[in-house]
Write a protein that binds this DNA or RNA. Structure first.
Length: 354
DNA sequence: GAGACGTGGAC
DNA sequence: TGTCCAAGTCT
């Protein structure tokens, strides 16, 4: 028996989550709101996104406002949310959309936008424009793999899962409500068909779930073992002056933490840095002291950072050579400083409660 | 297609 | 404590 779209939509009508980017039943949504939330929600929890979403709409009420804003301001507003390529693409996308006079309504047009891939294009098409497509995110992959008892491991099974997911809206009920149907799948995955200990007894699709029938639902989707996380080491320097300024520099536009600010420092390498070795990279001659040590976990490696601190009357003229910039430490909270660097500052300067 | 790409919360 | 996880995209 195929899963009943009507049953899922009935369940959704009773249990749908209220979320800031979600329209009330019967109301239309602003494509800008849908797009902004979808970009923020990529690999990011709802709880983490909500405050950023509100702040962005306060700062940039419409896509044109975002398009007109300087890159630095956008990056600063995104600071702490992670995956900073999203913020760069968000800005580029806003400019493209503003120039075009609005968001494209079809999959091909959406897919052409920077930062918009298969999933996000489908989500915007379904939620903002009512197109009968099924966006396949992690939730939908989990629901689908369990529903059809697809046991091949991710990521290899991705195409097979997507093929099955695309059949989920093969009904008049689903096609009449593409936006609700897509979000019903998200809510089902987030609230019932959860990664661990799914609440199958409460599931509107329990009667048709092959994974449940076979007793393997909780173990799906299977995943290929991931490679061990590497370790890297670095040293960064907190230099302050008598004027209450702190020395920062900008990271390259591409790559890790691209376009964000940082404390000057060494490269990050597999071997630890001895103190004398690290100090050769200090941004100025000064009385450096070992001020703290932090560990920061990225997706693909763990970073150990030694933080050195020093205070000088005024920054040397040579800081321009390393691309250094002096900023009042009171402004730190408003700058494009990633969490890693905030952690470094806090470790070396605990009195400076932010 | 596999690896790069952040962060914080839950168990 | 370490591992897993969250509305993925790009190269």
């Amino acid at each position: 028996m195929p899963p009943s779209s009507a049953a899922l939509l009935r369940w959704y009508d009773r249990h749908r989550r209220t979320l800031p980017w979600r329209a009330l039943p019967g109301r239309t949504v602003d494509p800008y709101h849908v797009w902004l939330s979808e970009i923020m929600l990529q690999q990011t929890t709802v709880a983490a996104v909500i405050p950023y979403y509100h702040r962005f709409l306060d700062l940039f009420p419409a896509v044109g406002d975002l398009a007109r804003t300087e890159s630095d301001t956008v990056m600063a507003a995104w600071a702490g949310l992670g995956y900073y390529a999203r913020a760069r693409n968000l800005h580029a996308c806003a400019r493209a959309v503003a120039a075009a006079g609005g968001f494209p309504r079809d999959m091909a047009g959406l897919l052409a936008l920077p930062g918009v891939g298969t999933y996000t294009a489908a989500a915007i098409a379904a939620i903002a424009f009512g197109q009968p497509v099924v966006p396949v995110d992690g939730n939908v992959e989990r629901v689908t793999s369990r529903l059809f008892a697809l046991t091949d491991p991710l990521p290899g099974s991705r195409k097979t899962i997507a093929r099955h997911a695309a059949t989920l809206n093969d009904s008049a009920e689903a096609r009449a409500r593409p936006s609700d149907f897509a979000q019903a799948l998200f809510d089902l995955g987030a609230g019932i068909c959860t990664p661990r200990q799914p609440a199958c007894a409460l599931c509107p699709w329990r009667e048709s779930c092959a994974g449940l029938r076979q007793g393997i639902a909780a173990s799906l989707p299977a995943k290929a073992p991931r490679t061990a996380r590497r370790v890297r080491h670095g040293a960064h320097f907190l230099l302050t002056d008598a004027g209450g300024q702190i020395l920062l520099r900008r990271r390259p536009e591409k790559g890790l933490l691209g376009g964000m600010l940082e404390l000057p420092g060494t490269e990050w390498r597999p071997a630890p840095w001895r103190e004398a070795e690290a100090l050769a990279f200090a941004p100025a001659r000064a009385d450096w002291r070992a001020a703290g040590r932090i560990t920061h976990v990225f997706t693909h490696f763990t970073l150990h950072v030694d933080v050195y601190a020093a205070h000088v009357g005024h920054f040397p003229n040579t800081i321009a050579r390393i691309g250094g910039m002096a900023v009042p430490h009171a402004d730190l909270d408003t700058l494009a400083l990633p969490s890693l660097m905030r952690k470094c500052v806090a470790a070396a300067w605990p009195e400076r409660a932010t």
